[in-house]
Every structure is written in structure tokens, then in C-alpha cells.
Design a protein around this nucleic acid. Structure first.
Lengths: 207, 207
DNA sequence: TTCACTTTGTAAACACTGTTTACCTTTTGT
DNA sequence: ACAAAAGGTAAACAGTGTTTACAAAGTGAA
């Protein structure tokens, strides 16, 4: 009867325990520096037990990544609802991306910096990240409709801004900005960078 | 007498053999997926032999990274010498960066995507990458002197452009652009992106 | 209750990893 | 000729992800 449902709940509970333990460790020490034995001992089970719930270590990463995107997307969406102006909203979402990378460096790396192969189990690059991308893209298209960037196609703007924000986050994350900016106050610099990336373009396409 | 010098040359030759084998493997399969035993068997020595020439695996990476930067810098410098206009030169160096990332994905990751900790042996983030940065920065400053980006500080432009180009390279490298651009012709898109990133800014600082 | 069957957990093994140790041979400078 | 140093290695150490064989417990039906 309901035995089966209870067992399914139990199974889900166990998966959660594994995911929580793994997330904590991955975020702290990085995917490659966490062994299954450490995850196992964190939840006080044997290493082999984990394989009853996940087919391998990569699948754990994959699920965590998806959950992370879901959470990130939700928080982002909340904040963005309060900003009616598309361009202002675009800037703010860029700031959110950077803020996320700085406050959760481990999680950021998990979500945005692991290559497709490493996480991709069934040949489809997680669709949660796809949804994040779609949100961003429609925001850009709003701006374009208002003429914020002049006469230019969406793809160019989308990938330019995405690259800019992502690259900045990545450079901060790997410690390269800190190594080269030389004790500069980072926060106002970030604002200026975002402002620069999203500065208005020419109304006329040259040449 | 000259015995000592010959021995030093021999030692250097052996280091080269190790570096060459390691580079080939690292570039093909990634740092973490290459074992010392594979490097060792590639040069037909025992694994332990390598430790007579490098203190550990990370040091091999560190040296390769440095050499890579040296080479990259040299090639870049050659090309750039032929372009007198600073802004045009800046765009071209961005293209060089992307081209490098696309034609040598493994090497790109080795050089630009390994975090400081992983390669940093003596607490100093390799100075060869620093020189690359200095080159780029002075190019930006030339452009600023000509008013190419309006009235704005160097740091903002430097980090904006660096982020943009680096981020794009990284997104291409991890397969995310391919996954999302959906069969678009990449090459002309790249041109448009670079053109967009380096579009002229306002002459007047708003607000 | 008894019985087959599935589920859940584990110890042990497998084939790896980076690195260190002890030891041997060869080369060196005196 | 001889002590010292250098170059190379097999074996071991402690670790990795994963699989296997097996035991215990829970389940549903006779």
C-alpha cells in the first residue's frame, strides 16, 4: 500500500543527505579535491552505499549544478521583478552574477566553470542553465527594442555582455584580478566596468 | 672542466624531454587526466625518475605555463608590430586571444584557466602572464590617449575588455557558446562581438 | 508463519593516482 | 684507487573512483 511511497520518500531523504554533504565539501574544497570516501564518512555510510543512489560521482555534481541554477534563477528573478527599466535590470542582473561569483566562489565554479563533458551525463548540457540564458536573452531583446545599444543584432549583444560578465567573474574567481589590480577598491570598479560594458552604442552602423 | 657544463646540458635535455611529453599529454587530456606514470612511460623512464628533475607534478605545469605565455606573447608581439593604429591593434590582439583559445583549447586552459593556487609554487602568480597583461594595458592606454573610449579611467577599460575577451574564450572553450548559439556561423559573430566590446564610448560622462 | 524476492548496506578487491623510500649502479673529482 | 655525488629504479604508502560478492533486513503473497 503506502509502504512503497514511504520507501520512495526514504530514498529521496538519503539522496538529500548525500547531496547536502557533497555540496558542502565540493563548495569548500572543489570537486576534484573531494573523495567519495569523505562524502561517505560525512554521512556515516560506506563509500559503496552512495552507488545505490547515484551512478557515479559526476552525477552528484550534475544534480547539484542543476539545483544551484534553480536557486540562482529564482533569487535573480525576484530581484529583477522590482526593476522595470530593462537596461537598469540588465545591469543589475550582471551585478547579481558577479556578486554570486564572489560570495559563493566554490558554487560558482561548480555551476559556471565546469566544462560540459564533466557534468554532461546524457549528452544534454543541463537545461536549467539554458533557462537562465533564455531569461537573460529576453532582457537584452527588450533593451534592443528600446534602442539602448543602437542598431545591432541580438546575438552580438547577448554574447558580448555574457562574455564580459562571465569573464570578469572568472578572472575574479581565479584570483587574477586581485593579483593585478593591486589593492584597488574592487566594488566601485565593478560598477564602472558594468557601466562601460553596457554603454550606449552608435545609432548608425559605421562603414 | 667542461664535464660539469656537459652534465648541466644533459640535465636540461632531460627536463626538455619530460616537458615535451607532459605538454603533449596535458594539452590532449587535461592536467588532471594525465598521470606521472603516463608521462614516465612516454619517455621510457620510471615514474620516480621525474622527481630528480621536478619537485612535483605541479611544477611541470608551472614551467609549461610560463613557456606558453612566452611563446604566446612573442607571436602576439610580432603580429601587433604590423598594426600602427592602437584601436585596430587592440581588436586584433583580442582576436589573437580568441584564436589561440580555439586552436589550442588544451593549452589555453593550461595557461589562462588554472587557478593561481594550482600553479603557484612560491606565492607569486607567474610573471610571464604579468608581462602579457602589461602589454595589453599599455595598448589600452594608447587608445585612451587618442580618446577612443571617451573620458574614462584605464582600469575600467582594461578589466572590461580583458573580461570580455577572456570570458568569450572561456565560454567557447567550455562548449557553452556552441551549446547555445545553435549552429550559428561563429567566425563573423566573433568579429561583431569584438567590434561591440570596443565600440566608442560617450565623449561626455553622464550624470 | 513461511517462503521467495527485492532492497539496502558493507568489506574487500581492482586498477588506478602522486609521492617517498631504500637501494643499486654509474659517473665524478681528487 | 677511492669516497662522494648523481641518476635511475622497484617497491611501498596512502590515497582515488568504482565493482564485486555477500550478508542482513524488509516486503508481499501463499
Amino acid at each position: 500500500m503506502s509502504t512503497q511511497k514511504r520507501r520512495e520518500r526514504d530514498k529521496e531523504k538519503m539522496r538529500r543527505r548525500i547531496l547536502d554533504a557533497a555540496k558542502q565539501l565540493f563548495v569548500k574544497d572543489g570537486f576534484d579535491n573531494v573523495s567519495l570516501r569523505r562524502i561517505a564518512s560525512a554521512i556515516e555510510y560506506s563509500p559503496a552505499a552512495i552507488y545505490r543512489y547515484f551512478k557515479n560521482k559526476r552525477e552528484i555534481l550534475s544534480v547539484l549544478r542543476d539545483e544551484g541554477f534553480e536557486l540562482y534563477l529564482q533569487r535573480q528573478a525576484e530581484r529583477m521583478r522590482e526593476i522595470p527599466d530593462p537596461l537598469e535590470r540588465l545591469k543589475e542582473s550582471g551585478k547579481g552574477y558577479i556578486r554570486f561569483a564572489m560570495t559563493n566562489p566554490g558554487y560558482f565554479r561548480l555551476m559556471f566553470c565546469t566544462d560540459c563533458e564533466q557534468v554532461d551525463l546524457e549528452g544534454k548540457w543541463a537545461e536549467s542553465s539554458m533557462r537562465s540564458y533564455t531569461h537573460f536573452r529576453s532582457n537584452v531583446e527588450e533593451c534592443l527594442a528600446l534602442g539602448s545599444f543602437g542598431d545591432i543584432d541580438a546575438d552580438t549583444v547577448v554574447f558580448s555582455l555574457w562574455s564580459g560578465v562571465h569573464g570578469l567573474a572568472h578572472l575574479i574567481n581565479t584570483g587574477q584580478v586581485a593579483a593585478l589590480s593591486g589593492g584597488l577598491d574592487l566594488d566601485p570598479l565593478l560598477d564602472r566596468i558594468l557601466w562601460f560594458c553596457m554603454r550606449p552604442g552608435d545609432k548608425e552602423h559605421e562603414k
